[in-house]
Computed example of a mutant assay.
Amino acid sequence: MSVIANIQQLIVLVLGAIAVGVELYALVHAATQRADAFVAAGKLTKPVWLGILAVGLLLGIASFGGLGLLGLLGVVAAGVYLADVKPAIAQVLGRSNDNRWGR
């Protein structure tokens, strides 16, 4: 049983590291975008998104290795930003990446 427990701990640790990496990427991306692009895309303002993503990253770091409910909230915040806000900002700024997917 000890080997299985060690493998499970390793999997949770790797998933936690990936989650924190995604949260950090979303925060850095949001920080490097123009503030007016958020408003032009019809999304929350840049400071609000930076706050949401920073809190999400802190929650992810706090629950690192456990990936509990707090860590899940951070991943959800980063996922919403990456799936909804990032493409909208790219479209407003004229940097749509649709061509790489054959569309």
Rank of each mutant, 00 (worst) to 15 (best):
G60V: 02
I61W: 06
Y81H: 07
A77S: 15
D98I: 13
Q33S: 12
L59V: 08
A40S: 13
D36I: 09
A83Q: 08
L10M: 13
G16E: 08
V22N: 04
G68H: 12
G56R: 10
A90T: 08
A83T: 07
A40M: 13
V22I: 15
R100P: 11
A88Y: 01
D98W: 11
F38M: 05
V80E: 00
A40P: 07
F38L: 06
F64L: 15
I18Q: 08
A5C: 04
I52L: 05
Y81R: 05
V76W: 10
V3C: 05
L13A: 06
I7S: 07
Y25N: 09
I7N: 03
L67M: 05
I4C: 05
A62I: 10
Q9F: 10
L72N: 11
L53F: 07
V75K: 05
A62R: 10
L57Y: 06
I52F: 04
A17L: 14
P87D: 02
Q9T: 14
W101E: 14
A37I: 00
V55N: 07
L59A: 07
A41L: 05
S63Q: 12
G42I: 00
Q91A: 08
L13R: 00
V92A: 04
R103P: 12
A40R: 14
A5R: 09
S2G: 15
L44T: 05
G94S: 01
N6W: 09
N99W: 15
Y81V: 03
V75Y: 04
Y81C: 03
I4H: 08
G79F: 10
Q9Y: 10
A62C: 12
Q91N: 06
R100N: 14
A41P: 04
I7H: 05
N99V: 13
V28R: 09
Q9K: 11
L93F: 00
W49F: 08
A77L: 07
L58P: 04
A35R: 10
N97S: 07
L73A: 09
G16H: 07
V75I: 11
N97T: 10
A31R: 09
A78V: 00
